[in-house]
Amino acid sequence: MRIDASDLHYRDLNRRIREAAAAGTKSFDLLNVNGQRYIGDGIAGAEVEIDIHGVPGNDLGAFMDGPTIRVHGNAQDAVANTMNAGRIIVDGHAGDVLGYGMRGGELLVRGKVGYRVGIHMKAYRGRRPVIVAGGTAGDFLGEYMAGGLLIVLGLETTNGEPLIGDWCATGMHGGAIYLRGEVDPRQVASNFADLRAADAEDLQDIRESVEAFCEAFSLDAGRILGDGFMRVGPISHRPYGAKYAA
């Protein structure tokens, strides 16, 4: 189903997608998308595929439960907010607060990601949410992280550009963050998280996700996985356990 989103309010655009998806439409081509929010919000079904041409607005794929979204362009803030399952692929850059409270599925961003990415991601049973950023990430990466996998590849960065911002892993109590390249230890919250070089077992842990990323953007996974990764993991699953008088 092709929908020309020119001059369509998000409410009308999303209603059409929701109704068509409920009626069994599996494939959507959204043309001329220009900042419409909430595309794919709460939509279910692993076979549903949404291709977005243009720039979707905030909360793309919020509460989504299964579908695949491909953005042929940049995405804005809050992509994959509290997402349960599914896949979102962004060909360009994406903004702040990606994957807040994300519980499952994959978010693959070819370019850079903004601030507060992967806050309070969590794993549950078979679900392990994954965010892969091809470029760099801003401050507060993986704050309060409770589960899942965050990978920052730092591809095509200019010299001296930091891979991540400050305050990475503040409040972290689960999951793992992998950073390809050098990281200033002062950027990682040492009172919550442990920064070390990734070993062979760790690389095995991220292989599948990096390969999926490379397949999505036609890149060479072997070359990327060959470079040195740093791993950030929680010191404790009970960061506040000793805080209280009893």
Binding site: A123, Y144, A146, G171, H173, G174, H237, P239, Y240, G241
Partner: peptide, 10 residues
């Protein structure tokens, strides 16, 4: 969330 993990509401 997994059994036994702290449930933190920031």
């Amino acid at each position: 969330i997994p059994v036994g993990s702290d449930a933190l509401s920031p």
